[in-house]
């Protein structure tokens, strides 16, 4: 309930916070909506898998242009679960201060042969996520969406809707692999995918990352399943479920309360090194540091980019 109130209060706070006009990017790590647009344009230019969208007309925010309300990249593969990655302290690097840790730094892109889905262990999930997950699991009156095999009690059985004779077998169609893992003839690996959104958070005056996950057969992932793809250090404290500001859908979001601090530290480190960081690079750096929360989601950003 606290988080619910917090989210409501955040809404009110955001309403009352004036839109940031003058650039405070270097001193505080926050950005103005104009700087958000500039950084977003640069991201779209460098990584065209990202694009601007306008979302729902009734939810447009007037401090952003109608056609540039938020950034999105869809169907980003997530080949394996965070916990299935072998992990040691050597794979970690403290990004800045003690707030963010870049994880799995030694891990290269994944080979297909390495990939085995490890069933999630929800017992690792604690605090508020655990509370809501438990609710999902226990309350039979509430339909939930996490049953991967489709035998959910609350979802109507649609086997009777099948029409095997609807069309003849088509020899020119490549047969899809079965959804079951381990089929040796699979030439397409079924994998989870995520849609990633970046909005501008007016209250924290930083970008904010949102995630909507789909399972191997493109069904929405439940909260519990999504937590398998978040770094366990962050899943407990930094990821919350909230309504996307431009779409009437609840999704996971990385809470932006620490973002400006981390950005400020990165900026001052760069300045100590005698270089200047343009505000257009803001989202590239942002994506690089949020990767520590979602190490297995393979979105496009310029990997060669260095601070």
């Amino acid at each position: 309930m606290t988080a619910f109130l917090q989210s409501k209060l955040h809404g009110i706070g955001e309403f009352l916070t004036p839109v940031l006009k003058a650039s405070k990017f270097k001193e505080t790590g926050v950005i103005t909506p104009e700087e958000f647009i500039a950084a977003g344009d640069f991201l779209v230019f460098k990584c065209p898998t990202w694009s601007w969208e306008s979302g729902e007309e009734s939810k447009r925010r007037n401090f952003l242009p109608p056609d540039k309300q938020f950034l999105v990249t869809r169907n980003v593969p997530c080949f394996k679960r965070v916990k299935s990655m072998e992990y040691s302290e050597n794979d970690e690097r403290v990004v800045e201060g003690d707030d963010w840790v870049e994880t799995h730094i030694g891990h290269e892109s994944l080979q297909k042969t390495d990939l085995q889905e490890i069933p999630g262990d929800s017992s690792a999930i604690t605090a508020k996520s655990h509370a809501s997950a438990a609710k999902d699991d226990d309350d039979d009156d509430v339909p939930d969406i996490e049953d991967a095999d489709g035998d959910d009690d609350d979802i109507p059985d649609i086997d009777e809707f099948e029409e095997d004779n609807l069309e003849a077998c088509d020899p020119s169609a490549l047969a899809a692999p079965s959804a079951a893992a381990g089929d040796a003839d699979d030439n397409i690996l079924r994998t989870r995918t995520y849609d990633l959104y970046i909005t501008y958070d007016k209250y924290y005056q930083t970008p904010r990352l949102w995630l909507f996950g789909h399972d191997e057969s493109r069904k929405p992932l439940s909260v519990t399943k999504m937590y398998e793809d978040f770094s366990q250090d962050h899943a407990k404290k930094t990821v919350t479920m909230e309504a996307h500001p431009n779409l009437s859908i609840t999704m996971a979001s990385i809470h932006p309360c620490r973002h400006s601090n981390v950005m400020k530290k990165i900026i001052s480190n760069v300045e100590v090194a005698g270089k200047e960081l343009g505000v257009h690079l803001y989202l590239m750096i942002f994506l690089k540091f949020v990767q520590s929360v979602i190490p297995t989601i393979e979105y496009d950003y310029t990997r060669e980019f260095s601070f």
Partner: peptide, 14 residues
């Protein structure tokens, strides 16, 4: 992999 419709339950996000 059968010829049949799909169903999605969005009660938790809508």
């Amino acid at each position: 992999q059968k010829l049949g419709p799909r169903i999605v339950d969005l009660s938790s996000s809508m």
